[in-house]
Each structure stands twice: as structure tokens, then as C-alpha cells.
Design a protein around this nucleic acid. Structure first.
Lengths: 211, 211
DNA sequence: GCAGTCCTATGACCTATGTCATAGGACTTA
DNA sequence: TAAGTCCTATGACATAGGTCATAGGACTGC
């Protein structure tokens, strides 16, 4: 999944490789979407900033993942900004040549449909979580989604690869609330905290812990 | 937009027409997505229900609009339930034949990518709104989106086609909060309330009102 | 024509989470 | 080796919006 494009294919259809330093912005929210992108190396963050400067993280993208497609296909403006969280290389793709690529590669076209579908499901899930659930429920839903998304089997534990600040910015909570809620979840045996790292326990581990 | 499929084409690729009474459920959340659907007549609502019974409306779909594609393409479970809000007819489409349809109709395939892209932008927008903005901002963002989405020109006013309860269920607010917030927005000259209906004013009207 | 349901509306009170202040540890940079 | 910066952590307090109760109007079905 999410490795639909080989470097050769991208070059063949006119994609250009761009280098970004850590912290550098690739595009800003409300700019017209003239291109879309695929991460070759490093990691990109898509985030929205409110007028008061509050950040909401729409997603992280790394090796082989594409981003920025929705406004590109819908011919609209980017709803969020894209920033490199570390030194990164991304392929930059323009419209006409890419439509040719899709026309000539059905499997890629279908794969892209699937990628967008998966992302839509993530957004739907998070939207109903953030809209109606409280802090602990939101955090649990996000962590279990991440675990499943990374292909970790249910019976294994999962080290949450984000800081509390990042979890806060993905769930619409404040960092203090995440810290406090995670602590409560530890007491409830849902997670374990070892040297600051959050371990999401499997059901089996939860039962063992209770004994 | 959103009228990619003719009845003939759908019949040709094995779609079946289903009739639904008002209030009837087409599929429930967490069921495996074996089909996806296109509205022929009437109106469908996609909504998620929390364990406490709180409803969150993911969207409404009517004439020619498709729904249920994301879990269908991602081969996952429906993240929400689909209910008829009035007597409706929907086309029911199964996987294999539909993939053939896409293979043989590039424009429809691309159109579907565009449809999902637009929906992804709506979700991204609502997600950051619900996550970090307060009641009035969320309601404004939703109403302006709906206005634009229905192709109403900015200089024209827009009659919001939803009840306060529906607005609440689309923004994660409570109906009392929506009622109170809309009243404040009326005092601020953002909307006008005539016989209970909410009129979203254009900028021009706002200025006139202030005079 | 009236019982039931949905809608808008408003007052009183409550609470989950935000806000602000402070602090110590780990890591990076100069 | 000191100054920044980011991270986790905790206490005190504030508040937006939720909750609950109540009510009148419009509409629907019987």
C-alpha cells in the first residue's frame, strides 16, 4: 500500500524532485493547488492553523505516500499547510502529465482511489470522535487506529510514535489534557508509560495486568 | 458534478435498484462494506452513533450522488450507518462488476477520484473546525461551505436548508447551543432569522444592515 | 379534533477541559 | 558549559458549552 509509484515512472511523467530542510514549508493553506506530491525520503506534516494560531495536524506522510491530492483533483485551494518535520525529498507532480499517467496505468488509478478511501475513513472516524467523544475515548480511538494502520497485530503491544503534544494536535485537545488523560489510562491498564513512551497494551496484557 | 452514472450504465454493470421507506436503514456502522450506492431519488443520511447514542451526521446524499465508496474500495467496514430521510431509491453496486466499469470508463474513474477529493476536503475542513474552533466559527464555516457547495454566488443570500438539530449533529454541538449561537450571530448581522429559517447574509447585506 | 412528535426557545446549573504559571530533565547549538 | 528549546508534569482557577427542565407552536396520523 502507498507505494504505487516508482522513481522511474515519476521521472517519465515529468515529476521533479525537491529537497526540503527540516521545518521548511512546501505549501501554505489557502494557496491554489497546482501540484501534488509524493514523499521520497523524510517526513512531511500537513497541518491547519487557526486565526488564533492553534495547530491541528491533518496527517503525517513518509516514504512513498502521496499528499495534497484532494485539492489537486478538486481544483481548489490547499486546506492545510505542508511542512517538512525533518530533511526530506518529495516528488512534485503537475496536473496534465499526471492525468496521462492515470489514463495509462489503471492499477495506479485504482490504487489512488483506495488511498483516498482509506484517508476518508480516517477522517470520518476522527471527525465523529472529536465531535462527540471525550478526551480518553478520542485518544484510544486514535491510538488503536494507528496500531492497526501500521499493521501491528492486535495481540501485540504498540509503542505510540508521537509526543503528547502531537497527540494533542491530532485530537483537538491540549497537551496538559493529553498528559493527564494518558495518566488516567495508565491507572486503568489501557496503556503503560515507560521512560515517557506510551505503550498501548493488547487485551491480553490488560488482563494480565489486572491480576 | 456528481452525476457520473446514467441508469443505463448502472443496469448494464449489474446494479440493482432498491426502494427504501422513510427512516429505513440501508446499512449499519461496522458492517463489512460489500456494496456501494448511488441515490436515484429521495435522500440518504450517513450518521455515526456513539455508545451513548449521540449522533454525528457525516453527510446527506441525494439525486445522483454516490456514498459508501470509501470502505468499499478500502475493503473495510462502514464507519457510519445509512438511513433514508424520506422515501428513496438507491442503486446497489457490487465490487467486481464495478471495477470493470471503472476500467472501461476512464472519465467516470477520474470523476470518482474528484468526488472523493471534494469529500476529503469537506472532512478536513470540518475536522479542524470541530477540533479547534468554537461554536460560532464552526457554524459559520459549515454554512459558508454549504452555500459554496450548492453553487450560490457570494453576493447572494443563502437559506440554510437544515434545522438547528441537524446543524448541531453536523458540528458536534448541542441543539441548545446552536439555537443560542445563531441568535448571537443574528445580532452580529451575520444571519437573519425569518419565521425560524436561517438566512446567511452576503457581505453586502451585512454592511447594509449595519447602517 | 386531539395525541404524538418535532421544532424553536429560554433559564438555571454543572463540568470537562482549557488556561496560566511553574518546574525539572533531556537534548541541541553556540 | 551555558543558553535555548522541547518534553513531561502538576496545581489553581476560569469558562464555553453541556445538561436538564419547561413551554408554546406547527404539523401528522388516526
Amino acid at each position: 500500500m502507498d507505494n504505487l509509484f516508482s522513481d522511474e515512472l515519476l521521472t517519465q511523467y515529468g515529476a521533479k524532485l525537491m529537497a526540503l530542510d527540516k521545518g521548511e514549508m512546501l505549501f501554505g493553506q489557502d494557496e491554489p493547488a497546482t501540484h501534488f506530491f509524493i514523499v521520497k525520503s523524510g517526513r512531511m506534516k500537513m497541518a491547519h492553523f487557526s486565526e488564533q494560531g492553534r495547530e491541528f495536524i491533518q496527517g503525517y506522510f513518509s516514504n512513498g505516500q502521496s499528499f495534497g491530492e484532494p485539492p489537486f483533483f478538486a481544483k481548489l485551494r490547499y486546506p492545510a499547510s505542508a511542512l517538512a518535520t525533518e530533511q526530506s525529498e518529495v516528488w512534485k507532480i503537475s496536473y496534465d502529465r499526471f492525468i496521462d499517467l492515470l489514463r495509462e496505468h489503471f492499477d495506479i488509478h485504482l490504487g489512488l482511489l483506495q488511498t483516498l478511501s482509506e484517508r476518508l475513513i480516517y477522517k470520518s472516524m476522527m471527525l465523529s470522535e472529536v465531535a462527540v467523544e471525550e478526551a480518553a475515548h478520542r485518544l484510544k480511538a486514535l491510538m488503536y487506529f494507528l496500531k492497526k494502520d501500521r499493521g501491528i497485530r492486535p495481540e501485540k503491544e504498540f509503542v505510540v510514535p508521537f509526543t503528547r503534544q502531537q497527540l494533542a494536535d491530532m485530537t483537538g485537545l491540549r497537551v496538559e489534557t493529553v498528559i493527564r488523560t494518558i495518566k488516567v489510562m495508565e491507572q486503568q491498564g489501557i496503556v503503560e508509560i515507560i521512560e515517557g513512551k506510551i505503550f498501548l497494551l493488547s487485551k491480553k496484557q490488560k488482563i494480565e495486568q489486572r491480576e
